[in-house]
Write a protein that binds this DNA or RNA. Structure first.
Lengths: 337, 337
DNA sequence: CTCACGATTTAGAACGATCTAAAACGCAGC
DNA sequence: GCTGCGTTTTAGATCGTTCTAAATCGTGAG
């Protein structure tokens, strides 16, 4: 049925040159004479030649394929990140193998093996919560270059692209402090990741700097439903927080919903600030104050880090931290007098 | 640096058998004797053997790789769809090549060529707006199996998995009609796709069935900002609609925001109903009535259609339409008396 | 002891590209 | 015409797997 697609051999036969010459044309080598190149290119166009990258990789070990592993495809933070990665990779004529670890280290391991089998040139990994800190070392033994993104395991053994959450949380706390809040709670998540550690670090640093008081840390499931349920926990805090900083926008949105269900108006009765500034932040009620982290830019940078590492394996390890921007809307309310 | 990974040859040497035997073990052939199989498997485990799927594909023409092209990675409808695809593919030991056409047919063509070069077994395509209707025929000439999803070009030439938007719009109109609305507007998008055509068809069918009146069709950009801006257009309609049905939840959310900016309270002054029932529908204010389409289930079904077609190329074309479910929340308001 | 037969195993060619090393070509200088 | 040299082209090996066809093994029948 499907006529097999032409190979270098076919092109060579029709063009009356050798396979090797056609190969040189395909790879845009300067070695071929101008007129042969044009002639061969015409034949390739005529026969609708498509280079078999798998076969090429077998010989020269470059598949122009990179694997990307994210823990989640629902949170638009990760999908925007992915957009950035995909865009840069496409511009570099590379293709993205996507997989979702669902935040399970075991699944992540399976995926890595599969990627290895597919001969990816490198991996961009947002490590699942609970990932073994030895993973980067293991991948190095495999000879599989990796860039970590958004989260990190091991002690800076790989390139890394992420958001500066320490600074981001600082911005948010400064904002709340400026508005007059003294007792600030943190709505966190249960799963431990470097992303959580950074936020907690930012929280205590920020409190120290602004002189505000840690009004308690409440943990929720990483879904808006979980956060809505956690609203009661927040309201029950002995310390009676006047403001809540949330792990991310999804939790913040859920919390606001929970607060309204408990008859508190976010932004009036209690201030809420999110992190990430997802598109959804403008659609909540009231519109959410949040700290923008530009996940797409982080994804693009992660992609760039990986491709430069592939080009230059020996270069020193590099880190990229996206600077945060505070977006003030209504959920943080107005100045307390 | 990176010790090259072991090949069949290496395993064979250590295990004291031939390359061919090891290959049979890898492929779980019943031809090998139990004790050799166990012995070889131990050696493979010891040496950390990973099968090179690219090399395998070169010989047997099955890469266990499928390409997925979506027009967008921001709208969570597509990312949930993607989740469904990825899950089923992973369960079948396949890997997903992801690309984003950004709804541009030209980019989509480039991506298809790239996928072809990578030797994908098949493609799940959500065709970009403006895709040539001849694309399915062209891909058939290439011998590249494809399943269309969520949108469709050509006249039912390929398997298809999508949502039953005709019925979905019908449910929404019935709901609005039950609430007493007679003048209903439709907030649509500019880009023409089969998805839009279906909704429009459902709109006129539904109006006919319920006896409600087409209060006008307003077109917006497919972003919540676009929809917010379109709120004025909706309010300016001569027909003074009492309800607006929206192309999807993103538009509905944006519209509600725009309406509130114009001092109309969705669900009280004017009813709003979305389509898709994204997670965001519960987070808007007021919570949005919408028609659930289960994109993840559609993605899973698309994946299944593709893998069964790969297994059985000759089978008749199949279509899957996900049945919609109405989710009543507050944006559609209560009965008009 | 030989033969036939099913169960295992294997040698060697293939897949479609790239690489290496060498061949062929063109041309100027003697 | 021959030599030398730079430019193009090429033959043939190679990457890691699977396929084909044939070889080998073990065993029970004759």
């Amino acid at each position: 049925m499907s006529t097999k697609r032409p190979t270098l051999e076919d092109i060579a036969r029709v063009a009356g040159v050798s396979r090797a010459t056609v190969s040189l044309v395909v790879r845009q080598s300067p070695l071929v004479a101008e007129h042969t190149r044009m002639m061969v290119e015409r034949v390739m166009a005529d026969l609708d030649y498509v280079r078999d990258i798998g076969a090429a990789r077998l010989r020269n070990n470059s598949s122009r394929t990179v694997g990307v592993i994210v823990p989640n495809l629902v949170n638009s933070f990760f999908t925007e990140f992915l957009t950035g990665v995909e865009q840069v990779m496409r511009a570099q004529d590379r293709v993205v193998l996507l997989a979702n670890s669902e935040d399970e280290p075991q699944r992540q391991d399976e995926i890595l093996q599969r990627f290895r089998g597919h001969g990816v040139d490198g991996v961009i990994l947002c490590p699942a919560a609970g990932t073994d800190a030895a993973l980067p070392a293991r991948m190095q033994r495999w000879g599989l270059p990796m860039v970590q993104a958004l989260r990190e395991v091991g002690t800076q053994q790989t390139d890394y692209a992420g958001a500066d959450y320490v600074a981001g949380v600082g911005l948010a706390l400064q904002h709340l402090s400026d508005l007059g809040h003294r007792r600030i709670a943190f709505l966190s998540v249960r799963a431990m990741t470097s992303a959580k550690a950074e936020r907690l670090e930012g929280f205590s640093l920020g409190l120290a700097r602004t002189g505000a008081i840690d009004a308690g840390i409440v943990e929720a499931d990483l879904t808006w439903e979980g956060a809505a349920l956690a609203a009661d926990g927040v309201l029950a805090l002995r310390s009676r927080p006047t403001a809540v900083l949330c792990f991310n926008d999804v939790l913040a949105a859920g919390l606001m919903l929970g607060l309204r269900r408990a008859d508190r108006q976010p932004g009036r009765d209690i201030a809420v600030v999110g992190l990430d500034d997802l598109p959804l932040a403008e659609l909540t009620y009231p519109p959410m104050s949040s700290v923008a982290m530009c996940p797409a830019a982080i994804g693009a940078e992660a992609a760039r880090l990986l491709t430069t590492r592939l080009a230059e394996p020996g270069r020193p390890i590099e880190r990229f931290l996206q600077a945060p921007t505070l977006m003030v809307r209504e959920s943080s309310g107005t100045k307390i007098v």
